[in-house]
């Protein structure tokens, strides 16, 4: 299952050239770019780990690409995303966020239906990968 989240979720995965162009776009607008990674693919997971600090003083996308390369080397089999924060007054929010790296094998989600009163159903989405403890997910041994 191909996980889609963020700004370009409707597009096929971006190439490095396209990632670089997007990052440069963000930097040109004065947004600070950060690299984050996680092994929990749940769409409501907002606690991604930061790779280093957000890059506040950077003006050229090459610097971000260099960090991304290192993050990929360290976490080849995790989800990595790039997010750009717009600090301008009145906005102060993440302006751009897209996935730039994903595990080789994405097992997908289990949808659990729970019956309760009056034949209503509540849904729970659970990632198969999240059945394993943190640090054991998306490892080559399974």
């Amino acid at each position: 299952m191909h996980l889609t989240q963020g700004t370009f979720s409707y597009l096929p995965p971006l190439t490095d050239e396209e990632i670089r162009a997007q990052v440069q776009y963000a930097l040109d607008r004065g947004w600070s770019v950060a690299i984050e990674y996680t092994d929990d693919p749940h769409p409501r997971n907002v606690y991604w780990s930061l790779w280093g600090l957000p890059m506040f003083d950077v003006t050229d996308a090459a610097a971000v690409m260099m960090e991304l390369e290192q993050c990929r080397k360290a976490n080849p089999n995790l989800y990595i995303r790039i997010s750009a924060y717009d600090r301008s007054k009145g906005r102060q929010t993440t302006a751009l966020s897209f996935i730039v790296n994903r595990p080789a094998h994405e097992p997908g989600f289990h949808l659990e239906r729970t019956d309760f009163a009056d034949r209503q159903i509540r849904y729970t989405v659970r990632s198969y990968a999240a059945n394993r403890p943190i640090g054991m997910r998306y490892r080559d041994d399974g």
């Binding site: 280093g52 890059m55 003083d57 950077v58 003006t59 050229d60 996308a61 090459a62 610097a63 971000v64």
Partner: peptide, 14 residues
């Protein structure tokens, strides 16, 4: 390492 990289990243493109 982080300090040096920080400066290098700031200088990229220049």
């Amino acid at each position: 390492a982080p300090k040096t990289k920080e400066v290098l990243k700031r200088a990229m493109g220049g």
